[in-house]
Design a protein around this nucleic acid. Structure first.
Lengths: 178, 178
DNA sequence: CGTCGAATCTTGACTGAGTCAAGATTTTGA
DNA sequence: TCAAAATCTTGACTCAGTCAAGATTCGACG
């Protein structure tokens, strides 16, 4: 028996508000979406929704384990709804696209430190960094991401999908990591 | 033959300014130091130094491979001068202290993704999360870090050394990760 | 069904950790 | 010694959040 998203929320003990359902749809629509991306999607989806309500909903949904929050270095926070496993991510240093990578172990912590120095470790967070197949094919070797220094003259952010316009809608698409 | 820090900078093709040498001393003094911590140390060390000069020096020193920049999720950037190996870090979820962990492999990337999806991976970034020995001994289970929500009524940041005042100056001390 | 308290939303302000940029100063090389 | 480049100082600005007061909605209870 499949629960509706509203039922899932109530089952976790939180109200099934229109804003939260819109946020869930945004995250389902775009794995590794930014908070700002969720705001844009939800505003198009249900009309008026405040940024604060989006941040609140994201926080609650993460807290209840319904979505996951990651944050590669140099990136705003990203959200995904793949929460049933302990997977990792690979990030392209050039265009910033983020993809899921299965964890070879499956449960946390999936790695043991050689010497844990007395720490009680409950999670090994792994991020793989490199170049995606498209940036390799195009021979790109330096980032063209919208780092602050590249934003002179009010150039706006370059998104991975701008670099790769022929990209089909892969599941790992449309996040902005760096 | 040991080079002086100034000689090392010149050898890397950059000017050995007083500001950069002060920044190097700050990072040597406090592994996993924040930029703000570097500013405070350098100001005490050499008198007047601007925040911008510290950020500039940190950027150049990272770029030249003389120091390393890490950034655990939820933390400002941290700087360390242990650059000769590919080590990882363990972060206490309660007090935020960061410690170095040797990499079992030693070279990058030290892990292979089970399925790299065509990515050309050059680094596996690993962070271990858990509780430090001191927070375990004190039975702490929830963070008392200065998260924004805990900053009501203008309470200032709790630093790991405030939680553990009897800490001797361990090498992994005085950084603030979360 | 009405009421009330809690939860949530809206709106606008604020913060931390950076970055930007103009002008001044210092460094370096010819 | 000089000039160009590098670097520093100073003050402003940005981004990605968070804060908080008041309004609105929701849910439980009688």
């Amino acid at each position: 028996m499949t629960f509706t998203p509203a039922e899932v929320l109530r089952d976790r003990g939180i109200a099934a508000t229109a804003q939260r359902l819109a946020v869930l749809r945004a995250v389902a629509n775009s794995p590794h979406i930014t908070a700002e991306g969720v705001v844009a999607f939800a505003q198009a989806d249900i009309g008026a929704i405040s940024r604060q309500a989006v941040y609140d909903a994201l926080g609650v949904l993460v807290n209840k384990g319904l979505i996951r929050r990651i944050q590669p270095v140099g990136s705003p926070a990203l959200y995904e709804d793949r929460v049933a496993d302990n997977h990792h991510h690979v990030i392209c240093r050039i265009c910033g696209v983020v993809a899921d990578v299965d964890c070879a172990v499956g449960s946390t912590p999936c790695l043991r430190a050689a010497d844990d120095m007395g720490y009680e470790i409950d999670e090994a967070e792994v991020a793989y960094w490199g170049r995606c197949p498209t940036c390799q094919a195009e021979g790109r070797t330096t980032t063209v991401l919208d780092t602050p220094s590249s934003r002179r003259q009010n150039q706006r952010r370059t998104r991975p999908e701008e670099l790769h316009p022929t990209h089909t809608a892969k599941p790992e698409e449309i996040s902005r990591a760096i």
